[in-house]
Amino acid sequence: MTDISQPHTPDTTNDQFRKIWTSPRNLFGLFMTGLTGLFAAIAILPLAAIVINVASQGLPLINLDLFTKLPPPPGLSGGGLGNAIVGTLIVLGVAFVISTPIGVLGAVWLSEFGRGSKIAYWVRFSANVLSGVPAIIAGLFSYTIVVMTMGTFSAFAGGVALAVVMLPIVMRTTEEGLVLVPEEVRLAAFGLGATRFETVSRVVLPAALPSIATAVTLALARAGGEAAPLLFTALNNNFWSTDLFRPIATLSVQIYFFAIIPFKPQQELAWAGALVLLSIILIVSIVSRFLTRRKSY
């Protein structure tokens, strides 16, 4: 027993700082460290498994035809997913054009003009709810608003559905980026005689540009893989189409249809398509990471 009322007398023996690995607290610490490492490994296991599985199934099936040819009729082999690749890019393009201005300008309002207000609170709350809405509901929304009024399934309707999926991601991520721009920088601009608009457009937005780019690529990666909202909006198309107001093939929907029919060539195309889709999303995500690294703040 040490007497804590007395000053500590230093132990002059040489091994006073020796670490005793077998002491209960060190053993427990080691065990817990190991446990966190194990669970970290388990957490990345699904991604690793998916990438390995899709790559091993899909890689042998990648060839030029995949990118240039139309899908074969049921039961026949050969062909490719050229129209679906083009279709995915078109539908994503429509979604991008719709969701980016709304999301970015909405975020600018939230961060620069409505900050702290009741309306801003509800707008932010709605965006959060929207991001939790199942993607198929976004499709249903577009079906009611676009498909029913225009009387046809179309690439445009698919784009609207994906825009609904993208909007909350673009808006919330952009807002986070805008809020990161220090208040002092805004004050500096005001102090130089800039108006509120000039401060936002010349200082805050340029400073937040990497975050905005991240927001958009993140949203594109998320929307690009969605099949559910496209099932009854963009529908599908067995032929080449670049018409915005006609049904269009997309990779995600094509994979869905080919994966559930009992013909081997189609199932193989689905694997190859899955690999292409996964690659597109990985590339977009890596680009997004790269943009994030160049942040000003």
């Binding site: 220090p182 002092e184 920088v185 004050l187 500096a188 601009a189 102090g191 130089l192 005689g193 800039a194 108006t195 000039e198 010349r202 200082v203 340029p206 400073a207 000003s296 703040y297």
Partner: peptide
């Protein structure tokens, strides 16, 4: 515009030195 301000913490814009200085002139 007539009564300028320098703050406690240096707060340059995340822009080039050139663009920092001419910011006021631009707006």
């Amino acid at each position: 515009r007539r009564i300028g301000m320098v703050f406690q913490k240096p707060n340059p814009f995340p822009k080039s030195i050139y663009d920092n200085v001419v910011f006021g002139a631009r707006v």
